[in-house]
């Protein structure tokens, strides 16, 4: 499975330093590619760093320079997925003009599609992430930067809807709320055994439609 190259994070100029940074990025991607292939074959827990380095064509020590643990590799994967997701969303197209529930649906759905080939790996990552001591835990220091980027992306999107009157002012909690929902949907998706994971599609759509309507009514709902 080819990994799409993500847009550069830093502006890398020409010259020696630039070249080195480029090499580093190439190596990182080669390692990730090898690791993901192995995770797919053997599962996250059973693939060793030695096998990963062999498959990537690097010495185990070199691998260590890039990723100290498999968790670091997983973290890198999550980061790349996020960067890709944001870039995909911001690409101009008809989606930009769609109503909010559809755009939010598209974000979660695209994310799920991207990680679908690595479902087992993601499952293992989620199990690890439940341990507070893990770097993969959503509250870990290592994930802070990732979280910040994600939250500001969502916050920007919701703020635009708030400005248009599509939503009441939600502020920061709106983005946190969506982040939780996004996580919950991934968990649901991981456990979804329906054909084509159709239950996930239905749940995703219905929750978003309902939540948007509820928010538009400022929480006023005739619950009966």
């Amino acid at each position: 499975m080819p990994i799409k190259t993500s847009p550069r994070k830093r502006n890398v100029g020409p010259g020696k330093a630039g070249k080195r940074a480029q090499n580093k990025e190439t190596n990182r991607q080669a390692i990730l590619k090898a690791a993901l292939e192995l995770f797919r074959q053997k599962g996250f827990d059973h693939a060793s760093t030695r096998e990963i380095s062999r498959r990537a064509g690097l010495a185990e020590g070199t691998l260590f320079n890039y990723f100290r643990t498999k968790e670091d590799l997983a973290l890198y994967f999550l980061e790349r997925e996020l960067v890709e997701l944001i870039a995909w969303y911001e690409h101009p197209g008809p989606l930009q003009r769609a109503p909010l529930p559809e755009r939010l649906f598209a974000i979660v759905h695209h994310h799920l599609e991207q990680i679908a080939p690595y479902e087992d790996f993601i499952g293992a990552v989620y199990l690890r992430a439940l341990q507070p001591s893990s770097k993969l835990s959503p509250l870990s220091a290592e994930r802070r930067e990732l979280n910040r980027r994600y939250l500001s992306f969502i916050r920007g999107l919701l703020a635009a809807s708030e400005a248009k009157g599509e939503l009441p002012p939600l502020g920061e909690p709106g983005a946190y709320g969506f982040a939780l929902f996004h996580l919950a949907m991934i968990t649901y998706w991981l456990n979804d055994t329906s054909a084509g994971k159709e239950n996930t599609l239905a749940a995703l759509d219905r929750c978003l439609q309902f939540a948007t309507r509820l928010l538009q009514r400022q929480g006023q709902w005739d619950w009966q």
């Binding site: 769609a98 109503p99 649906f105 598209a106 084509g196 599609l201 219905r206």
Partner: peptide, 16 residues
């Protein structure tokens, strides 16, 4: 009956 927006209809099509 519940309508599907283009993104959902497309996703549903692919899932099937």
């Amino acid at each position: 009956a519940p309508a599907m927006h283009p993104t959902l209809a497309r996703a549903r099509f692919k899932a099937s």
